[in-house]
């Protein structure tokens, strides 16, 4: 097999890790709160800026910068819920979609206002590994490993803790969880916080690989929705697998053509698949 193709495939798998992490966050929020955060990728953008400024500008040690970003974005997630989602919880689903769409608009423009449209890089150069003449970016490898760890941690949390069980239960019967002593509003806040923390974690991993600019969310935001829908909205395991399917299409497509066309392939694949399986790849 062509060595460069193999390299593309491996990088695709590694990219899939981060996308899977983001899909997990979005699916968690959708599964529990029943709202699609159109602005999810832009919240990741906020995290990337936070890391950039903390580390590159104010010379906070990188691990500490990461930690602050994760906590900060988790808090942002909670604020988004409190101020934007909570008021429209009983509105038509399209209003909810649009409220977060308005936030997308706001975040992108506000970032432009504050930071301009320059591309900024935190300037951490991680080595490129060479394994049997295949080049693999170390940053991607780390990202992949951390994304997997994050996913497993989330799984354990959902499986083993009371709150985690309540989170899984609430999407199955929203009304009856109250009878178990579960405060729905509190669960929503916890979930928004976790969704934010996952976005913050993804921001750390992406900041190692990409420049940050106000519109970076537009490049991978739509891909994340697509992954979630493909896996079945709210189905976390489905989304996790779909992330790797899509990232492979993007990686291999990019190898044979251009980056944009590889995304065109991925989106087209998605549209066609929706016709074959309208409720996602893994719907029963």
């Amino acid at each position: 097999m062509d060595i460069y193709l193999l390299e593309a495939i491996i990088n695709g798998i590694l990219l899939g890790g981060v996308l899977a992490l983001l899909a997990l966050g979005l699916n968690l929020i959708f599964g529990v709160i029943d709202v699609v955060w159109i602005c999810y990728a832009d919240i990741v953008m906020c995290g990337m800026y936070a890391i950039f400024f903390l580390y590159a500008q104010y010379h906070v040690p990188l691990p500490l910068a990461f930690l602050i970003a994760i906590i900060g974005i988790a808090a942002l997630g909670i604020l988004v819920h409190l101020f934007i989602i909570a008021p429209v919880l009983d509105s038509a689903p399209i209003n909810q979609l649009l409220a977060t769409g308005g936030l997308l608009f706001f975040l992108q423009s506000f970032a432009t206002l504050l930071f301009g449209t320059d591309f900024r890089n935190i300037g951490v150069r991680l080595p490129v590994l060479e394994v049997a003449t295949i080049y693999v970016s170390f940053a991607r490898l780390i990202a992949f490993a951390v994304a997997l760890i994050g996913a497993v941690a989330l799984y354990v949390f959902l499986k083993r803790t009371y709150i985690g069980t309540a989170i899984r239960a609430i999407s199955q019967d929203r009304e009856i969880v109250g009878l178990m002593g579960v405060d729905q509003r509190r669960i929503y806040l916890v979930v928004s916080g976790i969704g934010g923390a996952l976005a913050g974690l993804a921001a750390c991993l992406l900041a190692l690989q990409y420049d940050v600019h106000p519109f970076i969310g537009n490049t991978f935001g739509p891909v994340i929705f697509m992954i979630c829908v493909l896996g079945g909205l709210g189905n976390m395991i489905g989304g996790f697998i779909a992330a790797f399917v899509i990232s492979q299409i993007i990686a291999i497509g990019g190898y044979y053509s251009s980056t944009e066309l590889s995304y065109v392939f991925a989106f087209t694949f998605f549209i066609v698949l929706m016709f074959i399986r309208p409720r996602g790849l893994f719907a029963p």
Binding site: G102, L103, L104, F105, F106, L107, Q108, S109, F110, A111, T112, L113, L114, P214
Partner: peptide, 8 residues
């Protein structure tokens, strides 16, 4: 970006 910020 200020205009779009307020717009958002």
């Amino acid at each position: 970006g200020a205009a779009n910020t307020i717009y958002g």
